[in-house]
Design a protein around this nucleic acid. Structure first.
Lengths: 168, 168
DNA sequence: TTGCGACCTACAGCGACTGGAGGTTCAAGG
DNA sequence: CCTTGAACCTCCAGTCGCTGTAGGTCGCAA
């Protein structure tokens, strides 16, 4: 039987959150300030545990803390219509879909880079050439706004003058 | 005919970078310090323009600045074998592939949320229920390490006590 | 009572920028 | 030649979502 009032460490273990993260959520108002022992240590009840589980789950699904704040407001006022929760989820879905499209194109590009590198010198390395030249890129999502003055040859004469820059 | 020595603003426009970002890249040593006018303003040559284009392209493909630093070192020393560039690209590819897998699962989850929200009250909203309960989640990547003491019903009694928390 | 791990607050730092304040320079028009 | 205003300069603070550290306190078992 697990106790219902637990310390922050136990809560962290149960929800897979770091202790500092829990305190951080409290600080920014996502978690209400919990009860304290006489020695000023936090004690969390089951409601807090479930609220934190909600937050972690939403975070893992990629919701921003701001979106989660909106969602938690809705949780706290369950008589409203759920359009806002729906809107938050839909926005997130759109975001995820566009990321998937971008990542698929990116994967193509990287696969091509790796496929074409035949283990020679850097001077012939396609990885670097592809990165150097927008024109060879399959990934259409990031066209340079103005390509004027940018040659599309395989030259890499634009490395820094001495070839020895090691600003660290 | 575009001039070959341009100010930072023109460079920004040509590469789709913000002016501050260019200065930041210089500060952290990704771009070498450019020539200056007598009045201390930066003037960039074509090499700098191409180097910045390389950086931006790599960033858009999701490389970290650290990975880009490695790549630029290779660009500056083209006599080495290209194994390191290849390794950077391969690592990135693996990363992208795992992100795609995660995002596809996540999309499923969000689509299900949205599909099941029938525009009622928040009290019946599936978006919130799914977020509240790990057990209903298809997205296997984030199993809670310990579900003891977490009921799996549709109850949402764990909202904060007063229902009025508006810490902002 | 002692010991030690869990806890407390406060603050600094990460990556990769972005924005603003407050001052200087450049280039075009009059 | 002088004025104007956009572009530039440096320095610094803030963003997001944490994470880590320092230096001190508490809880609990032996």
């Amino acid at each position: 039987m697990t106790a219902d009032f637990v310390g922050i460490g136990e809560l962290a273990r149960r929800t897979g959150t770091k202790v500092q993260t829990i305190r951080y959520y409290e600080e920014i108002g996502l978690l209400p300030p919990p009860a304290r022992t006489t020695g000023n240590q936090r004690r969390y009840d089951r409601a807090a545990q479930q609220r934190l589980a909600f937050i972690r789950h939403a975070r893992e699904l990629g919701f921003s803390l701001d979106a989660i704040r909106t969602l938690l407001d809705l949780v706290d006022h369950p008589e409203q219509p759920c359009e806002r929760a729906d809107a938050v989820a839909r926005a997130r879905l759109a975001e995820v879909e566009s990321r998937i499209v971008r990542l698929l194109a990116l994967r193509e590009e990287l696969q091509r880079m790796v496929r074409e590198c035949h283990g020679g010198r850097v001077a012939q390395c396609r990885v670097i050439e592809v990165l150097a030249d927008h024109g060879r890129c399959l990934y259409a999502d990031h066209q340079a706004p103005d390509r004027t003055g940018v040659r599309r040859g395989g030259d890499r004469q634009w490395a820094s003058a001495d070839g020895q820059r090691s600003a660290s």
